[in-house]
Computed example of a mutant assay.
Amino acid sequence: MLNLRVNYPSVPSELELFHAYTAEFPRRSEFDLLHPPAYSLQERDEATLLQFLGVDMDAVKATSVITTIPSANSALYCVMAVLHKGLQVVATEEFTFPGFKMIANHYNVPLATVACDEEGMIPSALAAFLEAGTCKLVYLQPTIHNPTCAVMSLERRQAIAEVVASFEDVYILEDDAYRFLHPSPPPTFLSIIPSRTVHILSLSKAYNPFLKAAYIIYPTKLLQGLENYIRLTSSSPCSLFIDFGIHLLQGGRLQKIMAEKQAVAKDWQDQIRKVMKRVPYATHPNSFHFWIMLPQGNSSSTITSYLRTEGMDIPDGVDFAVNGQENYMRVALGTEWQSPELLPAMEKLAACILGNN
């Protein structure tokens, strides 16, 4: 069964980097890394992280704090654990990350969709929605959105930041999971409006899913009690992984891995373009996933059920739809890009969608 559901692209040089890192341990450091870490980073490691993100270090440190956590999913869960009692609704796009849908549902917080275009959420529509005064959190994936692959321009990000800043106690929850695939991404919301942004960075996609190292950067005093939820749900981050994560962010090590993955994704995009030339879909030139619009009268559940009998595990598009639309489907190549079975499977997928099977 080809796993076209999970999207964690991996390249062989990842393991080489880890071997080189462990080979450098002094004996004392090996023992130190067996202990749980502090939830906060040391000052030099904070500087490394913020430099990697390309933010104004002084501006972010003046308004925000950084907490370590094992994963982005854990971060989303713990952030909502802290905030949910004060939330009547969360603003999001028409399609969004299924994991966040599940977390919001777990805490009985409704998601409300705001009108979008090819860049994502429309600032004027967000402003109109916030006028009601019931929404205090806006969930965004601004760079290679999951699932639509939309990328917000700098101008769009600035406009949304201005809207958010004009309303009291409204914050952006920035989940930038696929930023690592964009060769020159626009600045983060953390960079544009740090005092109103909760930014989540995980290294599991940019590097490898075995690396449980992630960071939440958020306005001081916003997430009171966050560490208690981290401790309850995951015990604590892992010193080895947090240290290795910072090691990756130094000396351009992670950037080299990112560039390699971007090149692999671009090559696959060229192949997919030929196979899917008659299938309407949205993607990004460096993305491992693409978002297919199904012909009228077709539902994703029917097609994905059939494709599973043909050896392809693809999630139903409704998993991503806030309002239950069934005429889309996301296909992710990240886990299977090296499989010799992938290209024939894509040809079979295209034929199925076009009704030629």
Rank of each mutant, 00 (worst) to 15 (best):
T48P: 03
I122K: 12
P12S: 01
L140S: 05
Y139M: 04
I246H: 02
V90P: 03
G311D: 09
T148M: 08
V318F: 06
V79C: 13
S124N: 09
P36L: 12
S13F: 08
V65G: 08
R330E: 09
S204D: 12
F25C: 08
I242H: 04
W268K: 06
I69P: 05
M80K: 08
L203D: 05
S301D: 10
A159F: 06
T335Q: 12
V55Y: 07
D319F: 03
Y218F: 08
V114K: 04
S153Y: 07
V6P: 00
L2G: 07
M276G: 13
E260F: 00
M312P: 07
H35R: 10
G251E: 02
R273V: 01
I172K: 03
G324T: 10
Q271M: 12
P344E: 10
T96P: 01
I242M: 12
T220Q: 05
E94T: 15
S299V: 02
M258W: 04
L83C: 02
S64R: 12
Y281E: 01
K205W: 01
H35W: 10
H284P: 05
V151F: 04
S339N: 14
A62F: 03
L349N: 13
R273Y: 05
V151G: 01
E16A: 13
F290G: 11
P98K: 14
E227T: 13
G245C: 07
V264S: 04
A127H: 00
A321H: 07
L240Q: 10
P237A: 15
I122W: 01
V114M: 05
G311F: 07
M293L: 11
H284V: 13
K61L: 12
N105Y: 07
Y306F: 14
S300M: 11
E174P: 09
G225I: 04
V65N: 06
A206D: 06
A321T: 13
E93P: 03
E118L: 08
A321D: 10
I122S: 05
P147G: 02
A351Q: 14
Q269G: 14
R28Q: 10
T143L: 04
S29I: 14
I246T: 10
E347R: 15
L41E: 00
L342E: 06
L137K: 03
I303L: 15
S191H: 14
P344R: 13
L226R: 06
Y178H: 11
L33W: 14
F189S: 11
V138D: 00
V65D: 11
D243F: 02
H289Q: 13
F290C: 13
Y77G: 08
V65Q: 14
V79L: 08
K101E: 06
I69Y: 02
F129V: 00
M329H: 05
P123Q: 02
R44Q: 13
K348S: 15
Q296R: 01
P295D: 07
S339R: 14
A91K: 09
I216C: 05
W337Q: 15
N108V: 06
L154T: 15
S195F: 02
H145K: 15
Q325K: 13
S204W: 00
G297Q: 02
T92M: 00
L222R: 12
R179E: 09
D56C: 00
Y306E: 13
I216V: 15
L294M: 08
C116F: 01
W337E: 12
L111Y: 04
Y107I: 11
L181N: 11
F320P: 06
V264N: 00
F100L: 11
P9K: 05
L111K: 11
Y215C: 04
T304I: 10
